[in-house]
Nucleic acid binder design. Sequence first.
DNA 1: AGCCCTAAACATA
DNA 2: TATGTTTAGGGCT
Length: 466
Amino acid sequence: MAEPAGAAASPDIDPDFEPQSRPRSCTWPLPRPEAETGGAAGAAEEGAGGAAAGPGRAEGARAGGAAARKGGSRRNAWGSQSYAELISQAIESAPEKRLTLAQIYEWMVRSVPYFKDKGDSNSSAGWKNSIRHNLSLHSKFIKVHNEATGKSSWWMLNPEGGKSGKAPRRRAASMDNSSKLAKVRGKASRKKPPLQSAPESSADSPGSQFPKWPGSPSSRSNEDSDVWNTFRLSPILTEQDDLHDEELLPSLVYSSASSNVPPTVTEELELIDGLNLIHFSAPQTLEALLTPSSPPPRDVMMTQVDPVLPQTGNRMSSRTLLLLGGQAAQSKMSSGNPRGKPAEQQAEPVGASVLPSTLPIVTSPQNTASITSLKAPVSATTAQSVQLGSPVLLSSASPAPLGLNQDRLPTDLDIDMYMENLECDMDYIINSELMDGGLDFNFEPILPTPSYPSTSQASNHTWVPS
DNA sequence: AGCCCTAAACATA
DNA sequence: TATGTTTAGGGCT
């Protein structure tokens, strides 16, 4: 929705520049030769071409050509687009649909004539401040932690299209008054301290935000790949503190419950911190996966997962496994993925409803994909599978007695039950299988892993509960 | 009233 | 210092 036509490549944009333009082909044009100068002629359209037009200064150009302009005349020195729109375009223009703040600045300078000569620290203060302000303010922008580069966070467009407004949603619930604050609960929590005892702890973990996962390899950056390799299961086992169970469970509940009617990403965002993150990141990662430039995601996935598993100790591990397992289930079920994004990932397994899945827990190369999918949907899926008593899973994989409540309908999901069962199950598995070292789940590595439909938004909600 | 821009205070890393 | 988050005020529609 809504994404402002951003794409709009056409009309909406000011003639002066057409941000979106960006050199499509290349990966985020960092080094970009300032070639643009030309300015030239075609100015108006030119944008697309590449150079964002010359220094033609925004003002001038606009000329009538812009017929399209909505209101009519430019509202700002650079045109009629708002900062938010510009930012959106900047992000969209990036191959991976994400940019760091600095990159956004660059894009602005590079693509919007008006800012062209305002890149220096002197003159940039104001508009940069506005950029930052907009990023934080609008829910349409989401911040993804970017450890990989050690730089600032990645800013992406909220898949849900947080619309340009602040984020008012936040489903009712209790607290919260001003919709604005609600926006990204995560963010809000950090600053004003005195009020809550919330352990925002520190670092980047504004609780809500993405705990920690190596962003993704920056399309441009490359060397980051190392980071990717560094993460694996370890994090999962180690980082168990940040989240509270309470949060987690609810999250799961929510997810599973809504499997049919997947909450929107945004919603989840608001609802669940951890999970939510996962959702996002996953998809993103997925993209990364798909994207040639991106390195192996598996690590990432794992990393991502861990944040979600805030559990502690035993339970935690169980859950972790659970999640992983869920993935497996998921692959077989290939269904329950809510919302489109996650769907993408699942796409892989899709159709494989009958396929045996590989064993999750162990991150096998093949599983990479699966794992990927694991993240978000997992929760839901897991529950579902269990609930439904996914035969496949049971039969092929877990030796454990997962076949619980098959009689139950999804509607009356009793997460607790699941969890308990699952946990037990997991424990069981762990003990029996893993611990023994005999990890032999007979899973044929049939995972079709590879080809993900790059972006099949069409979520395949296949999980018919019936 | 809502959107947007701008400025600025704070906080963090 | 760069990033981020919030709050405030003012202009526009």
